[in-house]
């Protein structure tokens, strides 16, 4: 469904991604792991063109999205994104956060979008927070609301950039549980994470990034049992 071909990304003269190629199929759960600064966030942000690659090609369902003539907005509606810092809209209630894009971008009738929003909030366990503003939510609740907001556009894939890294330990689980639930629904998930437990249990596949290169692409059970590269082995030694 998503195919990357020799992706390079420069920030000024600093080469952050050094030729990354790979493929993610429909319904797959991919965990991207690697040391800090290895380019994980940058990679995931190139996929929905928040940081367009300097060179290389990205194909979504066979369509090249890195060519000039594509409708970037339309591509982004196919791919939700969940951020480390949640990035909920603070001046809208939780339900408005979820329903806004379906109403304004998808042009869904207002009532229909609100109903959809309510169903999604129920799905992430926030049915009693519809009228609450984000600043009044806990970190875990914020991230679950952000997941519901991404789901509301009914995307084919969701990109997660360290969704639990700014949460207190006791809230990590509630978010991971929601993500686990999603993994079985057939949606494609690309998850940058430091949660090795999640990567091992839930992900189908692991990409290990080091210094801007994709140095290992393995099914998650083999990756965690016997990593093929020395760098990955050392990394796992440190974090497990």
């Amino acid at each position: 469904m998503i195919r990357l071909e020799n992706i390079h990304k420069f920030f000024g003269s600093h080469e952050v991604l050094k030729g990354i190629s790979g493929e993610i199929s429909q319904g797959e759960v991919l965990a991207i792991i690697g040391p800090s600064g290895s380019g994980k966030s940058t990679l995931i942000r190139t996929i929905n063109l928040l940081d367009p690659p300097t060179s290389g090609k990205i194909y979504i369902d066979g369509t090249c999205i890195t060519e000039g003539s594509v409708d970037v907005g339309k591509i982004r509606t196919k791919m939700g994104m969940v951020f480390q810092q949640f990035n909920l809209f603070p001046h809208m209630t939780t339900l408005e956060n979820v329903a806004y894009a379906p109403i304004k971008v998808k042009k869904l009738p207002r009532q229909e979008a609100l109903n959809l929003g309510k169903i999604l909030l129920q799905k992430v366990g926030l049915e009693d927070k519809e009228k609450t503003y984000p600043p009044q939510l806990s970190g875990g609740q914020k991230q679950r609301a952000a997941i519901a907001r991404a789901l509301a556009m009914e995307p084919e894939a969701i990109l997660f950039d360290e969704p639990t890294s700014s949460l207190d330990p006791e809230m990590v689980k509630e978010v991971l549980n929601v993500m686990k639930g999603l993994a079985h629904t057939g949606i494609t998930m690309i998850v940058v994470t430091h949660e090795m437990g999640f990567a091992r249990e839930v992900a189908d596949r692991v990409w290990f990034l080091d210094a801007g290169q994709l140095i290992e692409d393995s099914p998650s059970h083999t990756f965690f049992r016997e990593p093929r590269t020395r760098r990955a082995y050392e990394f796992l030694e440190k974090v497990l």
């Binding site: 928040l50 810092q85 894009a101």
Partner: peptide
């Protein structure tokens, strides 16, 4: 916050 723009863009707004 820059995250607001990124969230909006990622929703295709």
């Amino acid at each position: 916050d820059k995250g607001q723009t990124e969230a909006a863009l990622s929703l295709g707004i």
